Amino acid sequence: MPERNIEFGKYGASGIKGYEAAARQLDALAGFITTPLTTRRGLLARLHYLTRTPHARKAARDAGLTVTDRTLQAWLEGRRSPSRKNLHNVETAYRTVRRHNVARYLLARLNRQGRGTRVEFHPFNQSQVDRPRQRVVSFRTLNVRHWDRIVEAWAAADDEALDEAWVSDATVDLGSEWGQYEYVTTIGFAA
């Protein structure tokens, strides 16, 4: 697409891609377990979430948690501890299943029966850029009405699809200066 930044940060600007900031905000709305996985409480909370029903167990297996039921039971009872690799698999499976479970709820919340949700674009940081090279970029708001592709890509953890959906369904509606908001400091939702 035109206006995509090729050498972002060349003169000292800092920020993150808009779709990454949107994904962080969606993660915050999803309400993941905040207790660290390395603690007993955090591990148990994730394992209970992944094993409480047969449907949850199947989803966890589909998401990459491939240990036996006997091993899961030993972890739940505290007789054994998962390896680093299995801790990573538990966290990945938990986030995948949680995203899938809350995607429909988030979609309804963000679309608000066609009214959409107001999004705040906080521009990238130019404090380290020399004065003559700074752009005039200001805080902008926009009402995004179509969240289907954005939430679908976020739930699938597909960064490329999320980037494309974020640009075409949200950022382009900012007008002719939409390329200036490809990188941002943060994105805020009024959801």
Score class of each variant (00 low, 15 high):
71 T>E: 05
134 Q>L: 02
80 R>S: 12
92 T>A: 15
139 F>Y: 15
7 E>A: 12
187 I>T: 13
27 D>T: 10
135 R>Q: 13
186 T>P: 11
59 A>M: 10
31 G>T: 02
113 Q>E: 12
103 A>D: 00
29 L>Q: 07
151 V>D: 04
51 T>H: 04
153 A>Q: 01
118 R>W: 08
9 G>V: 07
42 G>C: 08
138 S>P: 04
107 L>I: 00
24 R>C: 07
185 T>H: 05
136 V>H: 13
178 W>A: 06
21 A>K: 06
118 R>E: 13
172 V>C: 11
108 A>Q: 08
21 A>D: 04
89 N>C: 11
51 T>L: 04
136 V>L: 11
121 F>A: 02
16 I>H: 12
180 Q>S: 08
68 T>S: 15
90 V>T: 03
57 R>G: 12
141 T>H: 03
145 R>E: 06
180 Q>L: 09
81 S>E: 08
132 P>H: 11
35 T>Q: 07
94 Y>H: 02
75 W>M: 00
136 V>P: 06
123 P>Y: 01
177 E>C: 05
73 Q>W: 08
55 H>N: 15
50 L>I: 10
89 N>T: 10
24 R>W: 08
151 V>R: 02
74 A>H: 06
163 D>V: 02
48 H>K: 15
70 R>F: 06
45 A>V: 08
167 V>H: 04
1 M>P: 08
36 P>D: 02
